[in-house]
């Protein structure tokens, strides 16, 4: 094989370094562009937008810090939208690692941005319960059998907004933000599908393709990964002008800069790898 046709073999550490650099630089110099919402994201947004004020939303945050970078922006976007629509928000999690994630969402969004929102009247956290699909099954039939208190230890019948709740049918919509098992799939299988309650979901990019078969009959729509979260934020900006103010930090939009450069680097690596093989093959053929 002629030397001029040979491409250098990249060692692992070089690839690692390249990825680190292409992610770090846009974080420091903040590149971001306009997002164009996809039809799927728009559909979820329109559904939430169409719900009247006072609608009861079950916001299930089923993930851990491992998926926080992808899902927390999504949870915040859902939360902002629900609060803008003046809905009653019920937080819940099937993950033991979920309660701090709920607390963070409340402290980052509801407390500073919606000071009028009051715990127990406008939002409540039911906290975590173990049991995975069994927990969803009980919520579908008799929520108070499982939840005797809210996530903060107050009796569930002493809270204004949880008093009338019986089971999953008491909610107008379920918004599930999940990173795997238990998550959206279990909410559909044991909760919303048998009960006939609408559900829309946000999930990690890894999970998203696996849940597409439920769309559109069993799942209103789904947000897959950070890109969909950024698109949801773009719709929030389009609908509510205040989010164009930089003081409302839209996390997913900010992260799309480093995300894009990393994608481009990986595409470059794939092309380079294929070129190396092609040239090697051509060289072998010539010899």
């Amino acid at each position: 094989m002629p030397a001029r046709l040979r491409l250098p073999e990249l060692n692992r550490q070089f690839v690692f370094g390249l990825i680190a650099v292409v992610v770090c630089i846009p974080i420091l110099w903040k590149f971001s562009f306009r997002e164009y919402p996809s039809p799927m994201v728009r559909k979820v947004f329109d559904k939430v937008q169409s719900l009247p004020a006072g609608s009861k939303v079950l916001l299930a945050l089923d993930y851990d810090p491992g998926a926080e970078a992808e899902l927390q922006p999504m949870a915040r976007a859902f939360l902002r939208h629900c609060a803008e629509r003046k809905m009653k928000i019920y937080f819940m999690t099937l993950w033991a690692t979920g309660p701090p994630v709920i607390t963070r969402a409340i402290e980052d969004v509801l407390v500073p941005e919606f000071p009028g929102y009051r715990y127990g009247r406008d939002y409540v956290t039911l906290g975590f319960k173990p049991g995975n699909e069994a927990a969803v099954a009980i919520i579908a039939s008799d929520l108070k059998k499982l939840f005797t208190t809210d996530g903060r230890g107050t009796n569930i019948n002493d809270i204004e907004m949880t008093r009338p709740i019986r089971n999953i049918r008491s909610f107008d919509i379920v918004l599930s933000v999940s990173a795997g098992f238990p998550g959206t799939k279990e909410w559909i299988q044991y909760g919303t599908d048998p009960a006939g309650i609408p559900i829309a979901a946000g999930m990690t990019a890894v999970q998203a393709p696996l849940n597409y078969p439920y769309y559109p009959r069993q799942l209103l729509g789904l947000l897959g990964g950070i890109k969909a979260a950024a698109e949801y934020e773009a719709l929030l900006k389009e609908t509510y002008q205040k989010y164009n103010d930089p003081k409302y930090h839209l996390e997913a939009t900010a992260r799309m800069g480093p995300q894009t450069w990393a994608h481009l680097a990986i595409i470059g690596l794939i092309i380079l790898g294929n070129l190396t093989t092609l040239l090697a093959r051509a060289g072998r053929g010539r010899n």
Partner: peptide
């Protein structure tokens, strides 16, 4: 990223 470069042909 490393796997993309090495194995994705």
């Amino acid at each position: 990223a490393s796997a993309s470069y090495r194995a994705f042909r």
